[in-house]
Amino acid sequence: MKILVTGANGQLGQEVVKLLRAKHKVFGLGREQLDITNAQQCLFVLDEHQPDVVIHSAAYTAVDSAESEEEKAFLVNGEGTKSLAIAAERVGAKFCYISTDYVFDGTATQAYREDDETNPQSVYGKSKRAGELHVRSLSSRAFIVRTSWVYGRYGGNFVKTMLSLAKTRDSLKVVHDQFGSPTYTLDLALFLEQLIQTEKYGTYHASNSGVCTWYEFACAIFEESGIGIRVEPCTTEEFPRPAPRPKYSVMEHGAILANGFEDMRPWRDGLRAFLNELKEE
């Protein structure tokens, strides 16, 4: 297959490009090669490459900055996605849009299903939902893949931050009242590889399976790394941030299971694999 990946220099984009290159012809495009906010460039680049699939992982992801840069967040996540979806439809490509748990308000007490009402509370979440709506209305061959708490070998993320902090501190406070599912980029990339080869279009929730809080995630990182550090639980209110975080953003994997895909492995297994990979590096 010919696969065009946007955001190819990002945390997920780099993982996807590396994985798919083994079996497919992959065009990994960063912002320098494709500015998704330029509608004409989207049309030109997709016409030039004629991909079978577009995996759209480029996004404005600075969650807190988005609160003061609303226009920019919507330009990239909303209008940029719209331009890309139009261009993909024109060349007859499947369109896979990477979305987020932030489209939910986090007030649920049980896992969100793919068809549950979205109600984003942050600018970032609202801009990503705008992208989802454009994809639904403009693409006839679309996969919308919502994921959460992403980490991997490329770029900065929670796991790397915890390991870095442990080098200079003997204790840490980590939020214990936000629940979700960590997702290892390699596991997400493996699922995307399976998904795009089908015609099972629709919305998917894709994260490693299982639930934890950020505090529990931090404890697991140190336990699996053999690092002795004191981790104390705290509340969201103790660490105020510009953008509201969903308190509960656990997502049910109904579409993955209903469409015959294998569920993603438990989050702790994914974490262990990632930490082993870091050690080997």
Rank of each mutant, 00 (worst) to 15 (best):
L188G: 09
L165I: 09
A130L: 15
A130C: 13
E199G: 14
L46K: 02
P266M: 06
M1N: 09
M264F: 08
T185E: 05
A130K: 15
A273M: 03
T168M: 08
M162A: 11
I3L: 04
F179M: 10
L20H: 00
S148Y: 08
Q50K: 14
M162D: 01
I36M: 11
L133M: 15
R245Q: 12
T235S: 15
L75Y: 06
T37M: 03
D116G: 04
A22C: 00
V159W: 02
K94T: 13
R245G: 03
C219F: 00
C219S: 05
I256L: 15
S225T: 07
D64R: 01
P244W: 03
T61E: 01
T109D: 14
L278G: 01
K25L: 14
Y215T: 05
C219T: 07
K247Q: 14
T183R: 01
S249M: 12
K128E: 09
A220T: 04
S99K: 11
P120W: 11
R265F: 02
H205R: 08
Q110T: 15
L20P: 00
C219K: 11
A220Y: 00
S57D: 00
A166K: 08
H205I: 11
V63G: 02
I256V: 15
A39M: 00
D177W: 06
V91F: 01
G106C: 05
Q33P: 00
D52P: 00
R230E: 15
E79I: 00
D52Q: 06
D116E: 08
K18G: 03
V123P: 10
G92D: 04
T107I: 04
E132Y: 13
A93T: 06
R90Q: 13
A88E: 09
I229W: 05
N276G: 14
W214S: 06
L19H: 04
E132C: 11
I196P: 05
Q178L: 10
R31A: 04
R113C: 12
F191C: 08
P242T: 09
